[in-house]
Design a protein around this nucleic acid. Structure first.
Lengths: 347, 347
DNA sequence: TTGTAAGCGTTATCAA
DNA sequence: TTGATAACGCTTACAA
């Protein structure tokens, strides 16, 4: 049927073992031999069988992607980024959306890893913040890299984007535009990333001498619906805040923990006939496709998602690579950055 | 390390081969023996090694997802749908975005299949319409199922959603609202799905005695930017149509081949201060997340994407299953349906 | 630097 | 209905 290592060995007049060495980039092969073998490999279009390789070496050349994030755009960007490195190195990507609230979700992830003997997994936020999961995976002796906003693991096991810093840029942007009365809709406080973003934002405001009173800071759930609820609260249209909906009492800007919630804010503003950005500036985080399509388009923060995913794969592969084969080099990581659009303007 | 088929054989006092038969649900095993073996399997928590199995039987228990579709939301929905069936049956899903314009993309897909000895692949639109790809995959002896809008393959190899029918509902909706002067932005005409949608829409209009002149029907590229270009054309703001931008000359409704282009139309309407839906109704196709978030929210058509993906996996697995093991039952397929929102209203 | 032989954990062949 | 034995295609001791 298809050509095997034996064929290559025979054709190039060396042993199986030597061919194996060539395949695995072992340095312990004479230059002449290596070239001879490579030539044959090329000629007969040989590619080693993954399953046989895996069976013999207990590796699978499969990487897993574990996520509970509902943001399809984020997932898609991660996948494409990861794959651009994966497939170039002979690895494939197996996807695994999980339910981090489910009681047996750790078991489920471990089973996922075991079933296919994955060589490593990439864990996306927010489940990447789950300490127990990371511990269990480490315990199971599987390589992993977490994508996160905080440095909550060894350098080898994490790829961090500095969201705190990015939110400082957002604060500066709004202060420059003259905003001092700003509403902030955070993400769930149990997530480190939510706290990073919030703290970065508030700290920078402080250092610009802008202090937000507690009622300007509310906790959202990262969903569109939650954005709507929180916007009502900030814009003074809930029962508890009745009759307070005068323009003078409203914040002149609202920043949300993500674009989904910011979209909710835009929806409420539209319903209340509050003009954005003339009467209210709005900003989000993620640079979702929404952000550029919605009217007015949304000022937001873009993370280097694709690069982060690539870096994660590289770290993973470097780990699982046998000691004597060449390591690959790591890209420089790009920082998140502010994207200014229509939804923010002078106070 | 972990328990193997040998352990099970030893513990239950039968041969390897018999255990293998039990695992594979072969009927050629005595009832008593089967139960004895199953009991041991249960006790020692044995699960067969995929790689070894694959090596011996040349199967991988891996399914591939091939797509050139840039719509992350669609991909995500497919993945989740497919996985809900996959993992329940011990299969994993390997993803493969491809570039259908690239000259070696068929080779690339074949290599993807060969590399991991995939048991089958699901091909998403629009590349699912590519006849050469399907032929090549069939040639390579790999099972496949295409997701498409037209019945362009054997029943076993395709899952169809009736987009033509769905667009009839869209036509009826607009006619009911009193629209007779309607602009239509099609997708690329080389795609069957574009043609299906367009033909379904126009045919139904005809049968309601509404005929669109040629200049009301233009070909878009399915992108947001293309939506903007086409909207300008339909709303008479291009050079070639200068001075024709009087309300009376404009269509009272514009339907686009997808939500992305419809979003472009909304953007242009906003820029031209044309009120939607008061002065112009707009509709799309897909029910992207955009559709519900954008202001005004978009009337569109939702496909049963997740169900289609599940069905595809079921077909695939039924094929690759050995003849003597149980087949699984197929779900009923839900049809695409119209979702009415804010962007369409009475003329 | 290269080769020999023994697995890796299954399934498949063929006989009993 | 069952079982010994040989694949499957590769890697890894262990030699040479």
């Amino acid at each position: 049927m298809s050509v095997t290592i034996n064929d290559v060995a025979r054709l190039s007049g060396v042993s199986k073992r030597t061919v194996s060495r060539v395949i695995n980039r072992s340095p312990a092969v004479g230059e002449a031999t290596r070239e001879k073998v490579l030539k044959v490999i090329e000629e007969v279009n040989f590619s080693p069988d993954k399953q046989a390789r895996g069976l013999a070496s207990s590796r699978s050349y499969l990487l897993g992607l574990i996520y509970d994030n509902p943001d399809a755009l984020y997932i898609d960007e991660v996948q494409r980024g990861a794959l651009s490195v994966c497939s170039a190195l002979g690895y494939e990507l197996v996807v695994h959306p999980c339910h981090s609230k489910s009681p047996d979700f750790i078991e489920d992830c471990l089973s996922f890893i075991a079933r296919s003997k994955l060589d490593g997994v990439i864990i996306l936020p927010p489940v990447s913040e789950n300490k127990a999961l990371a511990a269990a995976i480490r315990e199971a002796n599987c390589a992993y890299v977490r994508l996160a906003s905080v440095d909550l693991d060894d350098h080898d096991n994490i790829v961090v984007s500095d969201e705190r810093e990015a939110m400082k840029a957002m604060a500066d942007h709004l202060v420059e535009l003259g905003h001092t009365d700003i509403g902030f809709i955070s993400g769930p406080r149990r997530y480190r990333s939510s706290m990073e973003r919030m703290e970065g934002f508030l700290a920078e405001l402080e250092s610009c001498n802008v202090t937000l009173p507690p009622e300007r800071i509310i906790e959202g759930k990262n969903s569109y619906e939650s954005g709507i609820t929180c916007a009502h609260q900030l814009l003074g249209t809930t029962d508890s805040a009745n009759a307070n909906n005068s323009a003078s009492k409203r914040p002149t800007a609202i920043v949300a923990n993500n674009d989904e919630m910011a979209a909710g804010v835009l929806r409420v503003a539209s319903d209340l006939a509050i003009k954005v950005p003339e009467e209210l500036s709005v900003a989000g985080f993620d640079d979702n496709i929404l952000a550029s399509r919605i009217i007015p388009s949304l000022t937001t923060i873009k993370r280097p998602v694709s690069n982060m995913a690539r870096l994660a794969v590289q770290k993973l592969i470097n780990k699982s690579q046998s000691a004597d084969s060449e390591k690959i080099t790591l890209d420089e990581l790009v920082k998140p950055h502010l994207v200014k659009r229509e939804s923010t303007d002078k106070k």
